[in-house]
């Protein structure tokens, strides 16, 4: 495998604003880490059955806590709020 790494696109995908100096450094570091972890490519995994014992764990949907018990605490942690709501920038914008 010899993929070309588009580090700028990767930063965008990860929603990270990264300086150009750091991008230049990551452009070297990430491929060298990938080269190291690629050593697993040679392992024969045919017939491997993973996670046989895994199952979903669900809580019964019962005994709700009292309304507003945590509202204030959680809202107090929010960076911006309007009344009892967390305020965010517009998510969907109309293209003009």
């Amino acid at each position: 495998m010899n993929e070309k790494l588009d580090i700028t696109a990767l930063a965008k995908l990860a929603r990270l604003e990264v300086s150009s100096e750091e991008l230049a450094r990551l452009e070297k570091e990430i491929p060298s880490i990938l080269e190291f972890v690629r050593t697993i490519q040679t392992v024969d995994v045919s017939g491997v059955q993973e996670d046989k014992g895994l199952r979903n764990v669900m809580r019964a949907d019962e005994n709700p806590h009292e309304t507003e018990l945590y509202t204030k605490k959680l809202l107090d942690a929010a960076p911006a709020r309007e009344g009892d709501r967390i305020a965010v920038k517009q998510v969907i914008s109309r293209k003009k």
Partner: peptide
């Protein structure tokens, strides 16, 4: 942290 997020984003892409 930025490095590992980028790495993780890549191996999952």
């Amino acid at each position: 942290v930025r490095r590992r997020i980028m790495l993780g984003t890549f191996v999952l892409s």
